[in-house]
Write a protein that binds this DNA or RNA. Structure first.
Lengths: 163, 163
DNA sequence: CGCTCGGCTGACGTAAACGTCAACGCGCCC
DNA sequence: GGGCGCGTTGACGTTTACGTCAGCCGAGCG
């Protein structure tokens, strides 16, 4: 049995995937309602294959970069019929290029904002250095790795809370 | 022209700003309800100063990079009391650094996704070049979608929803 | 004087992405 | 056979960022 767990037909329960990817069962069922996932069933229970797991990874990465579930579904559908007609592939290519353009735009916006923030930081640092150096915490000493035990700072920085 | 816009006595009606920045009066009033703008009044009518215009620019850029209105308001408030107490400036500095870290993370996510998309594009291009070169539209020319099927022009490309 | 135009103020509607709650099924275990 | 734990299906609630609609006001105009 233990050997079977590593074979490609390895399956997952909803809870296993939720634990692995830090999400809730409700979310997975919601993705299913929206057509992003369609796991097999044993009776009523959902059985996720390794392919479902891969799709879930794509969904979450898409969300991290700001795609809507509808957009992610489109892309997944295009991935899905990858070896179908050439016309479908052409459509997928168009979609992907659109995404690239959009992402590049978004990246440029971020860069612009970053530049502005850095400039604002520099101004504030200069000001504080003269008026109240005791309040100035240099940027160098941001995020020292914890020597042991738990980290003092909650590690949710990867995703700017929206949900 | 830019000097014209910055002249302190220059004011704007709600419609002028909406036209300039491609948004609706409803949106501007909404931002006001949320405390992001507070234009002067002539009777009931809103009168926007060049400072209000600058704030609006910041709001829209913040939205483009995925900030919620609440987050944008925080930043605007910190900007606002720039010459207040040194403690306030220190707090602003902390906030700004947090933002920088978050943005860098978001940028990294985008870069990752971009790399993946480009790779997928390359695969599709190679495939199409062999199977159906007639369907291959080079990346240089971005043509409108074919007559078959509906157009999906209703999507605002640069704005992630999340928030 | 009537009428439209732009603006204003509520008040309600909407879409996305889930959270929360209720009620129930099923296997297991003592 | 009663309870626990995991799972399921609705159904309703929530937040964000507005859209839409109704109704009112003052300015201008023919």
């Amino acid at each position: 049995m233990a050997a079977e767990l590593r074979r490609p037909e390895r399956t997952f329960t909803i809870r296993q995937l939720c634990l692995e990817f830090k999400c809730t069962p409700r979310a997975l069922r919601f993705y299913e309602d929206k057509g992003l996932l369609s796991p097999a069933r044993q009776g009523l229970n959902r059985i996720y294959s390794y392919k479902d797991r891969a799709r879930l990874q794509l969904i979450l990465r898409g969300k991290r970069v700001g795609l809507s579930l509808a957009e992610i579904r489109e892309i997944l559908q295009l991935y899905g019929k990858g070896d179908g007609g050439a016309a479908q592939n052409a459509k997928a290519l168009r979609k992907f290029r659109e995404r690239i353009v959009a992402f590049e735009q978004q990246r440029a916006d971020i860069d612009e904002h970053l530049a502005e923030l850095r400039q604002a930081c520099a101004r504030l640092e200069a000001f504080l250095e003269k008026s109240a150096p005791d309040l100035l915490v240099s940027a160098a000493e941001m995020a020292p790795p914890p020597p042991s035990g738990r980290s003092s700072t909650d590690r949710r920085l990867a995703s700017p809370r929206h949900a």
